[in-house]
Each structure stands twice: as structure tokens, then as C-alpha cells.
């Protein structure tokens, strides 16, 4: 039995591996859920400077980025985010001289512990937000953005769809033209600069003609299928399932608790003139937990999915 299983697994491997690389369960949720999540984490990430909140958000962003981009995320963090954080962290104490704990002097200016700590906090905030955006890039595909936009401005989303159709078509035609020109000995990619420029202009002018010419057909096809009739509806492939509902409700609940915690001052931290945070109470611990849950939500969903699959497979 086991052997048969292995054999079959081996055969479909190339396919399933590809799927696994891209697989992120959170991305398959309704765009509204994705969008609400990113609004929340990025919004909170930019506002909260409390070390606990900062580290929770960083942890969430980093794990999710790795989950989505794998090695590329690590590379991106090390090569881009980390140096940027260093610069941001280092720059602050150079210009900010507030704070009571003076560590030394640079020329006449004091170097304070508070400004260094504040710099580090700002740096982490920057890094975190950038990591979150790298996740947004992967999860919020053009379809999803268009869908969300279409909810608000239906005609705008139609224009977007047409532009997204047109751009690759236009590019492809330019490629075809330059290939064809090569066939008759007009190589656009060599010759003097002037020759190349002249040729480029010629191609662009002919492309405008081409676009106009083809748009007549497109317009015919649109009108023939009833475009312009009043009462146009907008179809989307996304379905708001019960799992989306559950995710959205928990998301909103978490957001409320975090905001309540924020209003109650749980995330308050004073950096200047000296560092001071509120007392850690039971409520603050609860807020931290909720914030952690919020930031790790996609990772949590992914892990849960993996566990479910594992269990299902072991049952088979």
C-alpha cells in the first residue's frame, strides 16, 4: 500500500511541487479579507512604537514574507531591509539630541541613549512596513485590486481590465514588428544612434495607427455584446464563503481589541526625555496576545491548513 502511494506521489511530484511553492492559503481568501488584513497591520505597524508591538509586527511580517517568497524574502531582508534599518537607526541619533541619558558627545552635540533607542524603534517600524508591503505585492494581485476598485467604481475597473488587456497586446505587436523588420534587414537594435532613433519613431507612429485600426474591431465586438446598455452588472470570480466570514469577523474583533488597547494606553511609550512605558497589566498582556494573533493570522491559517492536510493524509 505504502509503495503504491510512493509511486503515485513520485509521478505527480513536479506538478505538486510547483503548487506548493506558490501555495498560500491566506491568498485564497476573499480580497476583502486580504485587504482588511493588510490595512490593519500596515496601519498599526506605522502607528505603534511600543517595543512589544514592534517586535510582534516584525515577527509577523518576516515569517509571512518567508512563507510567501521563501529564500528571496531572506535575501531581500538581508540585502535591502536590514541595511536600510541600520541607516535609519544610525541617522536618528546624529540629528536628534533629546533625552536625558547622555552617553557621550559628538563635537558639541550630546549622544543620548533615548535617541538611539528611538532610532532603533523607527528603523524596525520601517523595516516591518516594507516587509508587509512585499507581502501585499504577492497577495494583492491585479485581479483582486481591480475587484475591490470595481466595487467602488464599476466603470473604472472595466477600463483597468481593458488597459491590462491592451498593454501586453501592444508590447507583443512591437516585438513582432521589430522581428519582422529584421527579416528585411532593418535591425532596430543596431546602426547609429540616429538611425535607431529614426526607426524607433517610425515604429511608434505606425503603432498608433495599428492601435486605432484594431480598436474599431474591439469597439464592434463590445457593442455587439451589448456594451453601453443601461444597468451593467459586474461579475467577479470571488465568493464570500463562511470561512471568509469567520476570518473577517475574527479579524475585525482583533482589530477592535487592539484599538481598544491602544486607546487605553497599552501601547503608549514615551521616548523623550526619558523612556517610560505603562505598567504591564493583565489587559495589556491580552492586547499583546491579540496583536500577535492579528499579525500572525496568515501564518496561523497556513499552519492550520498544513496540519489538516497532514492529518488527512495520515488517515488515507
Amino acid at each position: 500500500m505504502l509503495r503504491i502511494n510512493n509511486g503515485a506521489g513520485g509521478q505527480i511530484r513536479p506538478q505538486s511541487q510547483k503548487v506548493r511553492d506558490l501555495k498560500d492559503t491566506f491568498s485564497t481568501y476573499h480580497p476583502v479579507v486580504n485587504f482588511a488584513f493588510f490595512c490593519a497591520v500596515i496601519g498599526f505597524g506605522m502607528v505603534f512604537l511600543h517595543p512589544v508591538f514592534l517586535s510582534l509586527s516584525l515577527a509577523g511580517a518576516f515569517t509571512y514574507a518567508i512563507r510567501l517568497n521563501g529564500k528571496r524574502a531572506v535575501k531581500f531582508t538581508l540585502l535591502f531591509v536590514f541595511p536600510m534599518m541600520l541607516i535609519a537607526g544610525a541617522v536618528n541619533p546624529l540629528f536628534n539630541h533629546r533625552g536625558v541619558t547622555i552617553l557621550g558627545y559628538m563635537g558639541d552635540n550630546p549622544l543620548t541613549l533615548e535617541s538611539i533607542v528611538y532610532g532603533i524603534a523607527i528603523a524596525i517600524m520601517f523595516g516591518t512596513v516594507i516587509l508587509w508591503f512585499s507581502c501585499v505585492n504577492v497577495v494583492m494581485t491585479s485581479d483582486k485590486l481591480m475587484y475591490l476598485l470595481g466595487r467602488i467604481f464599476p466603470s473604472l475597473s472595466m477600463i483597468f481590465a481593458m488597459v491590462l488587456r491592451f498593454v501586453p497586446k501592444f508590447k507583443n505587436q512591437i516585438k513582432l514588428i521589430s522581428k519582422s523588420q529584421k527579416c528585411i534587414g532593418r535591425d532596430v537594435s543596431d546602426g547609429t544612434l540616429r538611425q535607431r532613433a529614426e526607426h524607433g519613431i517610425k515604429i511608434i507612429s505606425v503603432m498608433i495607427g495599428w492601435a486605432l485600426e484594431n480598436s474599431i474591431d474591439t469597439a464592434d465586438s463590445m457593442r455587439s455584446r451589448g456594451y453601453g446598455l443601461p444597468g451593467r452588472s459586474s461579475f467577479a470570480n470571488y465568493r464570500f464563503d463562511s470561512r471568509d466570514r469567520i476570518a473577517l469577523i475574527s479579524l475585525i474583533t482583533l482589530i477592535f481589541i487592539v484599538i481598544a488597547g491602544g486607546l487605553a494606553g497599552e501601547n503608549n511609550i514615551q521616548y523623550f526625555p526619558y523612556i517610560k512605558t505603562g505598567e504591564a497589566t493583565l489587559f495589556s498582556l491580552f492586547t499583546y496576545a491579540c496583536y500577535a494573533a492579528l499579525c500572525l493570522l496568515p501564518v496561523f491559517i497556513n499552519v492550520r491548513e498544513a496540519v489538516v492536510w497532514k492529518r488527512l493524509r495520515s488517515r488515507i
Binding site: 481590465a161 501586453p168 474591439t218 465586438s221 451589448g226 456594451y227 444597468g231 452588472s233
Partner: peptide, 22 residues
């Protein structure tokens, strides 16, 4: 090529039906 209006196959299939307001 020229008859296709939108960028996705599923959207193109739905295009006419959207116009009719289903």
C-alpha cells in the same frame, strides 16, 4: 485578437452577460 476586450479568460466570458446586467 481584436475581439477580446478584457485581460482574463473568465472575465471575457462574462463580459456580454455583465452588459445585459445579469
Amino acid at each position: 485578437d481584436n475581439q477580446i476586450v478584457t485581460d482574463k479568460v473568465w472575465h471575457e466570458l462574462a463580459f456580454g452577460l455583465e452588459s445585459l446586467g445579469y
